[in-house]
């Protein structure tokens, strides 16, 4: 049992992080909090990916130490170096998450300029007042 927990606990931590982020994205009514939740969510996925590249037993970062030598190629042991692929993928995913955050912040600026608030309830109230144009709430099942 202990062994099972030790083998899996890091995945579970990422899942909990993911749930926190997802709840903030769906349940919070403040737009900035939603955005922060989005960041937590994306970061937890990045952590999950990176942790798949870990190798126990003395593996180190995937930078070869004796690359200059002619016979260096024979010395390379796969178990000596971490799996480089998840790192590569997550470099891309980090960039994607930053880019999404940037665009989301830009729309938040537009929203703030228009309504002078970032609380979703207040924005909805303002819009209901200003005209009969109604927007469904995010994840509102009655819609």
């Amino acid at each position: 049992m202990t062994e099972y927990i030790l083998a899996k606990y890091n995945y579970w931590i990422y899942v909990v992080l993911m749930m926190i982020g997802l709840y903030a994205m769906m349940g919070k009514r403040n737009l900035v909090k939603k955005l922060i939740g989005m960041n937590i969510f994306q970061t937890s996925i990045i952590l999950l990916f990176v942790s798949t590249g870990v190798k126990k037993g003395g593996a180190t970062v995937p930078i070869l130490m004796h690359a200059g030598h002619e016979h260096g190629a024979q010395l390379i042991q796969v178990s000596d170096y971490l799996n480089p692929l998840p790192h590569v993928l997550m470099l891309t995913a980090i960039v994607v998450s930053i880019a999404t955050t940037g665009v989301a912040l830009a729309t938040l600026i537009l929203i703030y300029k228009r309504y002078h608030t970032l609380e979703e309830d207040e924005i909805l109230a303002i819009r209901r007042e200003s005209r009969a144009y109604k927007t469904p709430r995010i994840l509102n099942p009655t819609d």
Partner: peptide, 17 residues
Amino acid sequence: WGDPDSPANSHVSPRYI
């Protein structure tokens, strides 16, 4: 976690290393 023989660590990535 950290299994050196997991599929992720043994299918595609060894060739990179």
